[in-house]
C-alpha cells in the first residue's frame, strides 16, 4: 500500500499528539525525510536475530 506524503505526515502528527497529549494544531512539521533501515538493522531483520542493544543498568 503506498501512502502519500500528506498521509504519512498526518499519521506521524497523530502519533505525536497521542504520545504527548498535544493538540494537532500546535504541531508544526519542520522537515520530513524517509528513514531507511540501516545496514545493521537490515542484517538483523534478514536473519531474524533477536537483538537488544545493552542499556545502562541492565
Amino acid at each position: 500500500m503506498e501512502l502519500s506524503y500528506e498521509q504519512i505526515v498526518s499519521m506521524a502528527v497523530a502519533a505525536i499528539c497521542e504520545e504527548t497529549g498535544e493538540a494537532p494544531e500546535n504541531i508544526r512539521v519542520v522537515s520530513f525525510r524517509e528513514a531507511h533501515k540501516s545496514p545493521l538493522q537490515q542484517y538483523i531483520a534478514d536473519n531474524n536475530i533477536h537483538y537488544h542493544k545493552y542499556q545502562l543498568g541492565e
Binding site: 540501516s38 545496514p39 545493521l40
Partner: peptide, 19 residues
Amino acid sequence: QHQKGKLTARERMEALFDD
C-alpha cells in the same frame, strides 16, 4: 562476511555506539 556470522566494519560501529 555475513555468511561467516560476521558483521561489517560499519555495522559493528553501529552496534557499539548509542543509536
